[in-house]
Design a protein around this nucleic acid. Sequence first.
DNA 1: TTAGGGTTAG
Length: 541
Amino acid sequence: MDSHHPSPEYSSLLLAGPRAGALKQAHARLVVTGHSRSLPLITKLATLAVAAGAAPLLSAALPFSSFTFTAVAKACADLSAIRTGTAIHTHSILLGFGSDRFVLTSLLVLYSKCGQLGVARKLFDSIRDRSVVAWNAMISGYEQNGLAERGIEVYKEMQAAKVVPDSMTFVATLSACAQAGALDLGREVEKRIVSERMDISVFLGSALVNMYARCGVVDKARRWFDALQERNVVTWTSMIAGYGMHGHGHEAIKLFHLMRREGPPPNHITFIAVLSACAHSGLVMEGRDAFACMKRIYGLVPRVEHYCSMVDMFGRAGLLDEAMQFISDYMPGEPGPEVWTAVLGACKMHKNFNLGVEVAERLIALEPENPSYHVLLSNIYALSGKMHHVEKVRNTMIKRRLKKQIGFSLIELGGISHLFRMGEMSHPQTTEIYQYLEELIHRISAAGYIPETESVLHELEEEEREGALRYHGEKLAVAYGLMMSVGSTTPIRVIKNLRICGDCHLAIKFMSAVENREIVVRDKHRFHHFKVGKCSCLEYW
DNA sequence: TTAGGGTTAG
C-alpha cells in the first residue's frame, strides 16, 4: 500500500475513527472487498477498536489464513461439531478460501466424520489438482461410514487418474477391503506394497493382518502378524478378533495369553474380542478369567459391550440362569436392549420359549419401532409352533410399516462382484444358475438334506414365504460360484449382509460335502467355513 | 507450519 496516497479502505477506517459502530461497518467493508488479510489495514482497525473500547471486535478482525481454517475445521471434526463446522465452511467461502485445497480437504474430513458423505463428496469433486491426501481422506471417509464399496471405487478412480498412492492410501484401501470382504483387491494391494518394497509401518502391518483376518484367510493374517517388526495393541487385537470370528477360540486365548506375557497391555476392545471368542467357542471358564483380570489387573472398567459378551457367552453355553444372575449381580443400572438381545439369542438357541417371549416383549416395549425385535419375537413363536402368534406379529409389522432389512449375498469372481437377493432374476446367467442350484438341491437331498422348514416361518413378507428358502441369496451365490469353477479347488467365498439362516447353513454344509469344496460364508457377524459337511462355527452362532 | 490412517459386537 502506498502510504502517501491512502487507499479508499484506509480512508474509510480513518473516517470511522474510534467509534465501535462505524468501525464494524468499515471492517465489513474490508471483508467484502477482500482486504481482510491486509496487515496494515487490520493493524489500524485494531488500534482504533482498542481506542473505542471495542476490543472484542478485535478477535474477529485477526487476519485469516488457510491455517486458521484447517485448524478450526480439524477441531470441529474431532468434536463432531457440525454446526460450528458449517459456519466455518461459510466463513471460509466469504473470506476467499473457497477453493483452497487445504481448507477444502479439512472440510471434507469434517463432513465425512459427521456422516455427511454427500457434502464430503461434493467438496472432493470441487478440489482442483487433488492431492493424495484428499484422495485418501475420501477413501477412508467412505470406509469409516460403512460404505466400503464406495471407498474401493474411489481407490480405482485414483488408479485410473494415475495419482501416486502412499502408505496411507493402502491402509485406507485395505480397511475398505476388510469391511467389504474384497479379498482379491486386498491381495492386489498387498502385492503392490511388497513389490514396491514399501516400509511396513505398524499401521500398514495392522491393516494387512486385519484385511486377511476379516476376509477369512486367518493363517495368512497370522503369517503377517508373525513377520511384522512392530506390533501394537491394535495389531494384537485384530489377530485375536480374527481367530474369534472364525471360531478358533483356543487360538484366540493362546494369543491373548502371549499378549499378556510379552505384548502391550490389552485395552477395552481387546477384551471384547477375547470375550466374544470365548462366547463362540464355549470357553466359559476362560471368559470368566478374562473378565476378572480386566478389572483387577488392567484397571479397565467393563462397559455395556463387555457385559453383553458375558451374557452372550453364558447364554450360548446354555447357562441361562447364570446369564440372568450375572445381569442382576454385576450390571450397574437398568440393563439396556443390547443385553436383552443377547439373552433372547440364547433363548432361541436353547428353545426356552417362555423366557424368550418375555424378553422379546420387553424389547419391543423398549423400542417399538425397531423391526428386528419383532422379527426375533416371531422367530421365537415360530420355533415354539405358535403360528397364530407369528401371524399376529406379522400383522403388527405391516400395520406399523416396519420393514426388515433386505438380505443379499455377494460373490467375487475375477475381481467382479455379483449380487444375489432372494429369488434374484437379473443376473445374465439366471437360467443356468437356477438350473445348477436345482441339481445341487437334488444331490444334497439324496445325501440326506431335509429343508429346515422352521426357517421359512421366519420370513415375514408374503412373497418371501413362497418357496423362499430354496432361492435365498446365499444359495444362489454359492451355486453360481460352484458352477463357474467346476474342477477347481479354491474355496468359494460368499459375503452376506445379514445373518445366514438355519436352512442355508444346513444346505451349504451338505454342498461342501457333495461338491467336496471348501465354502466360506461371511455373514453379518461371523465366518462360516464349510468343509466336508461341517462348519467351523460348531453351531455357535 | 496447514489436510488423511489400523481394532470390538449385536
